[in-house]
Simulated assay, not measured.
Amino acid sequence: MLDDPSLVPAVVEESLRMFPAFAHFGRTATKDTELHGQTIHKGDKVVMWYPSSNRDETRYEDPDRFDVTRNPEHQAFGAGGRHFCLGTALARLELRVLIEETLARYPEMEIEGSPQFVESPFANQLKTLPVRLRPAA
């Protein structure tokens, strides 16, 4: 990305695909339907697991690999309709600016240690990610 800043938007999208902020959302089925051979009745409680849907092997080749050339359609902000996140544009802008400014200031950033995740059944976030920041020469 240092050599090609035009990749930053793709990095944002691939990051959202692999690491959505929320683990799941529950919903209530509004009508009878069938999904991959499973009958869902009106009134049934259903849960969408974002990390799982965003790593579906039937949709993504090598889904556990971070690939900025993938240009994914993902579920990080919901699946559209009335449950689509209103903050999508702002979140993408914040992530793009964060990545651009961090790389401009610390082009030789390195991971220094193991990431630790928040212990939560709802959040899909890092608690800590130790890094070494080296400023531009």
Rank of each mutant, 00 (worst) to 15 (best):
A23D: 06
L95M: 14
A123P: 00
L16N: 05
F22Y: 08
D67K: 10
P130W: 10
A104W: 05
E73Y: 09
L90Y: 06
E112A: 11
V11G: 01
A89V: 13
S15V: 00
G37S: 09
T88P: 04
Y106G: 11
R27K: 07
L93N: 10
N71I: 09
Y50D: 02
R105M: 10
R92Q: 03
T128G: 02
K127C: 04
S15E: 02
T69S: 15
M1F: 15
T33P: 06
L93D: 06
G87A: 14
E34Y: 00
V68C: 07
H83L: 10
L86S: 08
L90S: 03
K127R: 08
T58C: 09
A137Y: 06
F25L: 13
Q116G: 00
L7K: 08
P130C: 14
L126S: 02
R65M: 11
T28E: 10
L95R: 01
H24M: 12
P135A: 09
H36Y: 14
S53G: 15
R132S: 13
A10C: 13
I99D: 11
R132C: 08
P107M: 00
P20Y: 11
T58Q: 11
Y50Q: 09
K31A: 13
P51V: 11
W49E: 07
L126Y: 05
N54F: 01
M18I: 03
A21G: 04
L126M: 03
E57Q: 15
T28M: 03
G81M: 08
H74F: 01
K42A: 14
Y106K: 08
P115Q: 13
Q75V: 10
D32W: 07
D44E: 09
E61W: 01
V97D: 02
V97E: 00
A23Q: 12
E57T: 04
S6C: 03
A76K: 03
D4I: 05
Y50R: 03
E100A: 11
M18A: 08
R134L: 14
E101T: 04
H41R: 14
S52P: 02
G113K: 07
P130V: 12
F22D: 07
V12Y: 08
V47G: 01
F122R: 14
V118K: 09
E14Y: 04
